[in-house]
Nucleic acid binder design. Structure first.
Lengths: 343, 343
DNA sequence: CTTACTATTCAAAGCGCTTTGGCTTTGCTC
DNA sequence: GAGCAAAGCCAAAGCGCTTTGAATAGTAAG
């Protein structure tokens, strides 16, 4: 069923039918009612491609998911982020154009999405330090919102980030207050901006507390369970093991927990763990009694808010670039406790 | 840069330029070279919307991700499935149209995607028993491939599934051989087809071994860590606790593991665990020594294969419907061992 | 009863690309 | 050199929708 068919069926011109359905004022209400009714009855749905071509708007948002080349790993937070964003897109009639791209392919992917006119805007995922994509997108003139930020980039762009410096500083403060002096940091990949900021926060807090940073306690890798497990084992087996772990995500924290169990240590009593918790739907940090003491910030909510910001940018490209800094909550769970006495 | 601009620039007709770029034979090789070179030089990318409208092909695959209404949970396997599928799509020039839909909205979503001409084909995720979507998609005449199958549906449709009956039967056999008699099944939601089949497999194996099914040991819910944890605690605290757990996914298995630790039990020695492992990139089942004994089947590989099947269906809609049954590997890990002697 | 609007409706021109049908050339054959 | 097929190129007609500019009907004002 096409517009034309529907219009001949109604004895109207395509113009009028189009206007009636799109809510334009220059059409009699009685006519509009007839048209809407007929459209419903014949199950008419405007052809998206045609609409897009005619309006020049793709009504689609591009998400380019970075897949790290090493493990072809896709960060599991994406499904929740997308889930949040989709809620907002749906309300505004946007659809999602998903592309997975290796680290090196990303710029090209963005360029193509734009040149093809496939999307009206883009969410930039996983910004690294000095991320070159930001300047590129700005040059292209394609509206975009960064989920995170990029240290070292001094441009005026739209972003939404968690205050990673503060949240990891607070977490470190908490551990220090509990008497911990040897605190391990199991960070994400250092080139990722969020990881960089978390390290800064951690180091600041240590410095304030007069504790020297021990590089041997600061690790950085893709945030898998296995990474948490192996790193924790290695650190625990050192002559001077850490008494606390600050971990970049709940999945590697589960690995740390497993390592503790392997060594007969109990989280929260023998060794403390704090992790960042993205509040993933399938990996909630326990119920009433959280498994982990954690810096919590819902990535699904971040998705919703990024989506809303992007749609604003698309509708008013010259409006000022929103910059939103969310604070993570510090939730006390079962995984922290006072540092054990030196034996 | 549009086709028309490029063609006047070259002193050719749009027709010829289009043909040159799309590899049609009726264009001189010298001309084609000129055109291709000019396109490259001017960074020409055909407008997707226009192309789609003209060809009637959307060059896009629809993925409708079911979000369970209760927890708005998005199954974490999707990111890996999509990652696999995307590899194949990219090779064939397809893009992904992602929609998240609540359980009730799914049919409507598929209908709209089709009526709008937004996609050329669909991957059907998370089939339930008697899934009504299959008949619907067949009626619509939209090519589709089901990831999984739907018991109770007697139509000829394309699917790719893991042999869930066999894999859970084998897992149960293994536990029985190890001497376990009280085996708990922490299944996914029962309306999901895969969960149904896994239960069947489990029950068949028990029956063959002459062990009565105890309904109290068979649970079913969304596969979260918390579900695994709480269920395991509850079961372990019964007067006649299970000595083994058969778990539908690695995430709830981690919850079971945590429950064991809470109760001072060691996986593999005091209580055995077998789980199904989708081989998620960020949650590998350990390295050389798998954490869990598991029935393993890569969901990323499933994504690749479903994508390939779907593209075949799109290119040859009347070809026979492929039906692929994959066998899961049974990998022995650290989480299983002989049933402890009755005290 | 005109005149001047305003409210409705429509015809037609795109949007950027593909594709059908036709028109020139070119290259052979006899 | 006439005759003919193949090769190479082009004009024009869409694809299904939006939107501009014009036409028509209806209505209030003069």
């Amino acid at each position: 069923m096409t517009l034309k068919e529907l219009s001949t069926l109604l004895g109207l011109s395509p113009t009028t039918v189009s206007r009636a359905l799109n809510g334009y004022p220059e059409v009699r209400e009685a006519t509009r009612a007839r048209v809407v009714e007929a459209a419903r009855k014949h199950n008419y749905r405007p052809n998206m491609q045609a609409k897009r071509l005619a309006t020049g708007r793709a009504m689609a948002i591009g998400h380019v998911i970075p897949a790290t080349s090493r493990h072809e790993m896709v960060n599991p937070i994406f499904s929740d982020f997308l889930s949040g964003a989709s809620e907002i897109y749906a309300e505004h009639g946007f659809s999602v154009n998903l592309t997975l791209a290796r680290a090196g392919d990303q710029e090209r992917t963005y360029r193509e999405l734009h040149a093809q006119g496939a999307v009206d805007g883009i969410i930039l995922h996983g910004p690294t330090m000095n991320d070159p994509r930001i300047a590129m997108l700005q040059d292209l003139g394609l509206p975009f919102v960064v989920h995170g930020r990029a240290s070292g980039i001094d441009l005026d762009y739209a972003w939404l980030d968690v205050n990673n410096v503060r949240s990891f500083a607070r977490a470190t403060d908490l551990l220090v207050d509990l008497g911990h002096r040897r605190i391990a940091l199991l960070n994400g990949l250092e080139q990722m901006d969020f990881a960089h900021r978390r390290r800064i926060g951690h180091e600041q807090a240590l410095q304030r507390a007069g504790i020297a940073c021990d590089p041997a306690l600061m690790l950085s890798d893709e945030m898998t369970e296995d990474y948490g497990y192996r790193s924790a084992l290695a650190l625990l087996d050192r002559p001077d093991p850490p008494t606390a772990f600050l971990v970049a995500a709940i999945i590697p924290a589960l690995g740390v927990q497993r390592a503790l169990h392997d060594r007969g240590l109990r989280p929260g009593r023998d060794v403390s763990i704090i992790c960042h918790d993205d509040d993933l739907s399938y990996l909630r940090n326990g119920g009433d009694l959280p498994i982990f003491t954690a810096t919590t910030s819902s990535v699904r909510e971040a998705g919703r808010r990024c989506a809303a910001l992007l749609i604003e940018q698309i509708n008013a490209p010259d409006s000022p670039k929103p910059q939103v800094l969310l604070e993570a909550a510090l939730t006390i769970g079962q995984s922290t406790g006072p540092a054990p006495r030196r034996s």
